[in-house]
Amino acid sequence: MANVKDGWRGVLNGKPEVGAFAERSRTTRMEDIQAFTAMTGDRNPVHYDEALAKKTAFGKLIVQGGVTTGILNACVAEDLPGPGTVFLNTSLDFRKAVGVGETITGRVEVASVRDDKPICQLKVSVRDSAGDICVEGTATTYTMPLEGL
């Protein structure tokens, strides 16, 4: 049998286990919309014009999708797999808009782990305080070894 290289050597949190998960919660703010607009230029009126937003199917001002999914970045980079982790791929379905002042919870769960490289397949989701799914999908991550740098 060929010798399998341990691709997780030097990774701060070590190799994660299938089924492990991490969650983070936060409450969205108007400042999130403004910061996202400053970064991207997204000034869609459904984020700024309350009178117009109330007439839409959303019925309220909503935060940009990037604000909603940003919590997943924190889950991946800070918690699981952890420091040094970046996304290689994401596939996300947006199911429910998130309004200003809503508390959301991002969750990442390890679906599979490669032995030869520090790569994981994750199930990802963002839920609102009622437990409704706002975003769900999958992600592939790569975790860079940081020990010894």
Rank of each mutant, 00 (worst) to 15 (best):
V4M: 15
V4A: 15
D6G: 09
W8H: 13
R9D: 14
R9V: 14
V11S: 09
V11T: 14
V11K: 07
G14V: 08
K15L: 00
P16W: 03
P16N: 06
E17G: 15
E17Q: 15
V18Q: 05
V18N: 02
A20G: 08
F21H: 10
F21R: 10
R24N: 00
S25C: 10
T28R: 05
T28G: 02
R29N: 00
M30W: 10
M30E: 13
D32S: 07
T37A: 15
M39H: 10
M39G: 05
T40E: 10
T40H: 11
G41R: 00
R43Q: 11
V46G: 06
V46Y: 11
H47C: 02
H47R: 01
H47N: 06
Y48S: 14
D49V: 01
E50Q: 09
A53W: 12
T56N: 08
A57H: 11
A57M: 09
F58Q: 08
F58K: 04
F58T: 04
F58E: 06
F58D: 05
G59M: 04
G59W: 06
K60H: 13
K60S: 15
I62G: 01
I62Y: 01
I62M: 01
I62A: 00
G65Q: 01
V67D: 01
T69P: 00
G70Y: 05
L72S: 05
N73H: 09
N73E: 03
V76E: 03
A77G: 15
A77C: 11
E78L: 12
D79S: 15
P83D: 06
G84W: 09
G84I: 11
G84D: 10
V86H: 02
F87C: 03
L88R: 15
N89E: 13
S91R: 12
S91C: 07
S91T: 11
S91P: 01
L92Q: 09
D93N: 07
F94D: 02
K96R: 14
K96F: 02
V98G: 04
V100P: 02
I104L: 02
I104R: 03
R107Y: 08
R107D: 07
V108A: 13
E109H: 10
V110P: 14
S112E: 11
D115M: 11
D115P: 10
D115Q: 14
D115L: 12
D115A: 14
D116L: 03
I119S: 02
K123M: 09
V124E: 03
S129Q: 13
S129I: 06
G131K: 09
V135M: 01
G137V: 04
G137Q: 04
T138G: 07
T138A: 02
T141W: 00
T143C: 12
T143L: 05
T143Y: 08
M144V: 00
M144Q: 06
P145E: 10
L146C: 10
E147S: 11
G148V: 13
G148I: 12
